[in-house]
Design a protein around this nucleic acid. Structure first.
Lengths: 190, 190
DNA sequence: TTCATAAATGAATAAATATTCATTTATATT
DNA sequence: AATATAAATGAATATTTATTCATTTATGAA
């Protein structure tokens, strides 16, 4: 018997991400996804119940990718600034190298596809970072303000860096990366 | 003869913004917009050629609103930090009070509705801020790095503040606003 | 090599949505 | 007050898009 080619799921995801980035969640059709993925329309329905489930599954996959990337090789036992820098760099790299996924997550946030509960779980993704920031405050290394705002500040700068690197086709050299980290660090340091 | 009620355009815009925020550009239909605006579907077509033009016009209106808000009561002759603070506050206030418009602009950026040229003109919106930052560098008040990255940093933090104030229903007190400005200022200052 | 089974196909159908238009309504002008 | 004109309506139509399904294709098992 013919067996399901699990690779196709990745092809479908890749195709969808490309189209969402180019045309928005508004712009994709099952036909266009199938065409971009190089399969027949009907085949989509072998792998996904319907359009909504395709988006939801893809969204979940993207969130999982984020979670695993953000804290890669982060050692909670390392000095505060070292750990902070590792996570900062990880998130920047993730956002840039997986920009399409970030766009999808952003678009899903304002879509009928993703429910409130799912949005809430997104918050949990940053838990290790929250703990690190709390520790930094205890050690009087960073400003003593609500971690919520410190996180907001940090994520905000990172997201915008990723967007502008992509949109304006900027090269992120080691020097520029360092300078950008310095902006963030000087902002939060005590 | 019956005369066109120009007020309706605002009703339509308001309805569309509300729906886009809730359901994304993907989620709106001409029927839902008409219903939300309290008019008949056909009436939409008296004011807008078609769906695409409705979105494009609304997008333009939102961009114009931004441009006029960002530099309100900004005096280019004032000391650097004063001017910087005015613009920073203006953008924060704008993003929060007109959050729906920001969402629409963001969504349009990844949609088939807005062309590349239009996206480019968005950049020009920040020209007075670019000039102010250049001046700040000349006066050695802020870090001597590419204005592009200083702008990225500033806009990034602001956008994220607006998002999180809205999504997490946070109250922006004078104290919190000041503290957030401090984060940004400490980041860019020389 | 044949068979059985599930994947893959894509045209056909169903469903959703944009757009039109014959009719009604409101109001400036006379 | 009567008329003319354009807005407003919303059901009907056209168009687009999601989904299905009869048929074909590929491949592990016998």
């Amino acid at each position: 018997m013919k067996v399901k080619d699990e690779n196709k799921i990745n092809d479908i995801y890749t195709a969808t991400l490309k189209l969402v980035r180019a045309n928005g969640l508004a712009g994709i059709t099952m036909q266009s996804v199938a065409k971009e993925a190089g399969i027949a329309t009907g085949t989509l329905y072998i792998y996904f119940e319907n359009k909504e489930m395709l988006i939801i599954r893809l969204f979940d996959a993207c969130v999982k990718n984020s979670a695993s990337d953000f804290f890669k090789s982060y050692d909670p036992g390392s000095p505060f600034k070292v750990g902070f820098r590792v996570i900062w760099s990880n998130i920047v790299q993730h956002r840039i190298s997986r920009f399409d996924e970030s766009i999808l997550i952003e678009q899903c946030f304002h879509s009928p596809f993703i429910d409130e509960d799912t949005k809430t779980t997104l918050k949990k993704m940053f838990e290790p970072l929250v703990q690190l920031l709390d520790r930094g405050k205890n050690e009087h290394l960073i400003k003593n303000m609500d971690t919520f705002w410190l996180l907001t500040f940090m994520i905000g700068t990172i997201n915008e860096i990723a967007k502008r690197v992509t949109y304006f086709n900027k090269k992120l050299t080691k020097e520029i990366l360092d300078a950008n980290f310095q902006l963030c660090w000087d902002g939060i340091k005590a």
